[in-house]
């Protein structure tokens, strides 16, 4: 049997219609109150918590037969998580899937926002491990809800203060807290803070689903999303010393790829689709060969192997937080 053949006996997109209605109501409420975490009756999904059960439920609720689905895991279209979820919806909903950002109408993501700017006819669905930005500062759920309700976010700045006091700069590099539409403080899921500016005033609708924590929240198109900071320590994104080794792209988020056991490494686009597109368009990094999709020298680095050493286990495991990105350059300090 063809593994992409549609499975029988399941409702369209796996979840039953009543469940999808329930999730859609939560999504609508989330859109109406940008950044507010809407509780919802998260279902058991045929995958473990931490693998994107929240994102999958949101995707299942908004997916239509004409949609084209793209799934990214750490920017890559071909790691275990991304492949499995894509296959899951290909089988249970029979929708078309793609790896190209421009072709997709629904993009489910883990840890990255695509480099290609999103359009108003696209929806970005984030898989969120821990939706509560105040979680590690205030352990009581009753208290964090109260803090959100009263808009008391001084605590969030205490965390940033501690970062600066300890490291000389804000050392939070992912899940960097943002203020949405001037009201709720939100955890943008563990995307690198590099992606925070892309969440601001985005053309596309952005939905966030946390399955284990049973929360859905949303950022409607063209919503003001501001990363928290201090006046004398303004928000900055990561910068990289060198362009992508394969496609020479600058101003994009790079992953470190270990090439051998003698310290050889290269930095390549974390967004694989973006990187491929650029190479097809003729851009060449210093490690790219003549064949548009083949890096030279050490044989082809298969797309499936393009997982950074320290992320190998991460991409195949339910770890909710990415390990620190060693490839990040130092941030410029005032």
């Amino acid at each position: 049997m063809n593994e992409h053949a549609q499975a029988t006996g399941y409702n369209f997109a796996y979840l039953d219609e009543q469940t999808k209605r329930m999730i859609r109501r939560a999504i609508l409420k989330g859109i109406a109150i940008p950044g507010y975490q809407v509780p919802f009756a998260s279902r058991e999904m045929p995958m473990p918590y931490g693998w994107g059960t929240g994102g999958v439920q949101v995707t299942a609720a908004i997916l239509g037969p004409d949609d084209v689905l793209k799934v990214i895991d750490q920017g890559s279209d071909d790691t275990t998580n991304a492949v499995s979820i894509r296959k899951f919806f290909a089988r249970t909903a029979g929708v078309a899937t793609t790896t190209k950002t421009v072709e997709a109408t629904v993009i489910q993501t883990r840890h990255r926002v695509p480099e290609t700017a999103l359009r108003s006819d696209q929806v970005l669905v984030y898989q969120v491990p821990i939706p509560e930005p105040l979680r590690y500062l205030e352990p009581r759920e009753t208290e964090t809800r109260k803090l959100h309700a009263l808009g008391e976010y001084g605590l969030m700045h205490v965390k940033l203060y501690e970062d600066i006091a300890r490291h000389g700069h804000v050392a939070t590099t992912y899940a960097y807290p943002v203020e949405v539409a001037g009201r709720y403080v939100m955890d943008p899921s563990p995307v690198p803070k590099f992606d925070n500016p892309k969440i601001d005033d985005c053309e596309a609708l952005q939905l966030f689903g946390a399955g284990r924590e049973k929360r859905i929240y949303a950022v409607p198109p063209h919503t003001k999303v501001r990363s928290l900071d201090f006046e004398d320590h303004p928000f900055r994104v990561q910068t990289f010393k060198d362009p992508c080794a394969l496609c020479a792209a600058e101003g994009v988020y790079l992953d470190e790829v270990v090439l051998d056991d003698r310290g050889g490494r290269m930095f390549v686009c974390s967004d694989t689709d973006y990187c491929e597109e650029r190479r097809e368009a003729g851009h060449r990094g210093h490690l790219a060969g003549d064949d548009p999709l083949s890096p030279v020298g050490r044989g082809r680095v298969a797309e499936g192997d393009r997982v950074r050493e320290e992320h190998k286990s991460d991409s195949a495991s339910p770890s909710p937080r990415p390990s620190p990105h060693r490839g990040e350059g130092e941030e410029a300090l005032p």
Binding site: G154, L155, V158, Y161, E162
Partner: peptide
Amino acid sequence: PVSAGGNVGERLMAVGARHYGNIR
């Protein structure tokens, strides 16, 4: 879990102080 400076600064940040140098 928060440093002494953070403890003293918390109330300031809670009422809207957003200048690290001044808080410190």
